[in-house]
Simulated assay, not measured.
Amino acid sequence: MQLNAGCELSFQAQTPTPLILMLRPRSGAGQWIIREEYQITPAVNVTEFTDMYGNLCQRVVAPEGPFSIHFSATVQTADLIDVAPGAPYTPVEDLPDDVLHYTLPSRYCQSDQLGNLASSITNGTESGYDQAEAIRKWIHENITYQYGTSNASTSAIDTANNRIGVCRDFTHLGISLCRALNIPARMVVGYLYQLDPMDLHAWFEAYIDGRWFTFDATQEKPRGNRITVAYGRDAADVAFTTQFGPMQLNDMKVWVDTAQNDAEESERKMEQTPTLSNSAGSMNQNSNQQ
């Protein structure tokens, strides 16, 4: 499915403030970026780099006063995500070098303290995919999803104890429980079609049988039509904005809609517009071609 997705962020900076932004998705497994638009007001110099996880990051300095960011994209997404019940566990000695660090504890994912819980959840389950799915299902059934119940300091240990949180907390707990079983797990942030309520979203991936699989503990069943923006060990690696100074977020809007209506409307307008067959560009013209 083709999706139109994006966000608008409005800030107020008290002084000139450096920012790192992580808002641009890139083409890869399960998604193809057809079109994207990036607007920053007021206009400032922007430099872009790729971080150690392969995420596209932008560096800017917001001037004092109001500062806004608009990003939108049209993305071809996969309608389904792969599932593989029974897929075997990948032994640590066989893990690729760049996957090994996803087995270790991190700031929000204290996997070294959750071994007993992970073992109790997966007791009697085959090692590998079935363990990760048992963890996802347990979180979905035992952790209450509720806004305003956690903050930027909430960790997987807090969520395991309090049994309440949002997608960020569900994801940290899922990652931690997988790592406690030596299953590499990483955080993914992006967009999910028909998420209710609509917001930027987080889920986790586990490395099983030589590849990454998607798990989303906020959803009852596997769902596709996702747009991945960034990967990391936990939320510390995948913040959409990281600011280095006094700056207040005043408003944030997020949307994900099907692009089918746009395509039908464009086709209707083309049918109603007379063209000259000999005019330049009248045939095979595509303004969105990259």
Rank of each mutant, 00 (worst) to 15 (best):
K221C: 03
L181R: 13
N225E: 12
F11I: 04
S266F: 10
M252K: 04
A206F: 06
G224Q: 08
T258I: 00
S266V: 06
E141I: 00
L117I: 14
R163M: 13
L114E: 11
V75M: 05
N284A: 14
T125R: 10
I40E: 11
Y191N: 05
F240V: 05
Q260Y: 13
N142T: 15
Y38A: 01
M22Y: 01
R226S: 05
A202H: 02
Q289R: 12
I157P: 00
D199F: 12
C167L: 03
P63H: 06
S266Q: 12
I20G: 01
I227W: 10
P88M: 02
A62Y: 11
R268E: 13
Q146H: 09
W255A: 00
P91I: 01
M270H: 14
A29F: 12
R107I: 12
D51M: 08
L56R: 13
Y193K: 09
A43G: 08
P25L: 09
L56E: 11
H140A: 02
Y89D: 02
A160W: 10
N182H: 14
P85I: 02
V44P: 07
L80I: 09
Y108S: 04
I227T: 05
R211K: 15
S155A: 07
D79W: 03
E48F: 05
S111L: 04
Q2M: 07
Y231R: 01
R136K: 15
P184I: 04
A134C: 01
G6R: 05
N250Y: 04
R136G: 03
T74L: 06
Q113D: 09
G6I: 03
Y102Q: 07
P274Q: 00
A62G: 10
T273K: 12
E64N: 10
G30V: 00
Q219L: 15
Q248M: 09
N288V: 07
F215I: 05
F71S: 01
D51Y: 10
K253C: 09
P85A: 03
N116I: 14
I143S: 05
A180V: 04
T41L: 14
A62I: 12
E93Q: 05
T144R: 13
A87G: 07
I40N: 08
P184W: 13
F67M: 06
T41G: 01
K269F: 13
M52G: 07
N123D: 14
I164F: 04
P63V: 03
P246E: 11
S282G: 05
V44R: 01
Y191R: 00
N182L: 13
G224Y: 07
L181F: 09
E205L: 07
E133W: 11
N142V: 05
Q2R: 12
T125P: 00
I33Y: 10
Y207M: 01
V44S: 02
T218E: 12
V60A: 03
P197T: 06
T125A: 05
A160E: 08
N116A: 15
